[in-house]
Design a protein around this nucleic acid. Structure first.
Lengths: 157, 157
DNA sequence: ACAAGTATCTTGCTGAGCGAGATAATAGAG
DNA sequence: CTCTATTATCTCGCTCAGCAAGATACTTGT
């Protein structure tokens, strides 16, 4: 048997029940994961590499520098694994290592512009679709979605 | 540096915007993934093993038998990887291999009752919390949540 | 029967991530 | 100002999930 692309076992609960939405949320989580994985494979990366780029871009948008150690902590890797991860990303040209001028033990990781563009070209359409959907909602509907997602985040800790 | 548990880099968009909800959804997907991973590690399993158990239980609930090949396809593994996966799960006592009586090339995988109970003890509270939350919603709010999640699933293909 | 097809398993390998410890730089006590 | 403790990253050797290729076992169509 050759290799194949993963395919969801679609499962459903009785329509209209709360359980239906619970299953739907799980399905969305799985589908988003697969969406990331596909992006990774298309660009010769591993899921962890994509998670790393997202973490780096998030921090950059929040105006924070990310050191190697920071990144490893965020991803749950130990120091050896973090070094290997940054090596891979650097070798692929997605990030640069920059020695911190103030504390020269630190290495800050900078994302290459082309990696950012690559990410947008893949995740942009998904984000656009989400924003489109939500524009059709009134304030109470938005609050419902927000409340449900926030509640699930808190419960998943 | 010893190993550590992953921790989310919390990022936010301007409150009240659609982008806030987009980020929230992504955060939920990440948190649910981490919730699964934690379950895996606590029980000496790998993320793939948990995905496999969930796929098996989903199929069982839908009244379908799952063969080794089926399972591998659902998880995106090739046949060698699938054999190794089932070996691990069987060694841990979570599943049993049962030769199909009609077609004796096939091996159907049955989940052990204790694995089911174990899963419920971990994911049950999360599901309960979700159902609780949703019980407070009226029909229009439920439709909003359902519509958003369904739309995101379709967009993530 | 028997050739072709299908389902699973075996073998040997690659590579992500771990544990332990080396190396380099900073900070704090005296 | 130097010596020690601490912090940040990297190196080395290893384990194990998953892959490619092919072996094995069973079924089906002719």
């Amino acid at each position: 048997m050759p290799d194949q692309e993963g395919e969801e076992l679609v499962e459903r609960a009785e329509p209209g029940t709360e359980m239906e939405i619970v299953h739907l949320l799980r399905a969305v989580a799985v589908d988003l994961g697969r969406h990331s994985t596909r992006f990774a494979q298309r660009n010769g990366m591993h899921p962890t590499d994509v998670r790393a780029l997202i973490a780096l871009m998030d921090a950059a948008r929040a105006g924070e520098e990310t050191t190697a150690g920071h990144l490893g902590t965020a991803l749950g890797l130990n120091s050896a694994g973090t070094t290997a991860l940054v090596d891979r990303l650097e070798r692929a040209g997605h990030v640069r290592r920059v020695r911190d001028a103030r504390d020269r033990r630190k290495v800050t990781i900078e994302v290459d512009e082309r990696a950012v563009a690559l990410g947008w070209s893949h995740f942009g359409p998904l984000i656009d679709r989400a924003v489109d959907l939500l524009r059709g909602y009134d304030e109470r509907e938005l609050a419902a979605v927000r409340g449900f997602l926030t509640g699930m985040r808190e419960a998943a800790v």
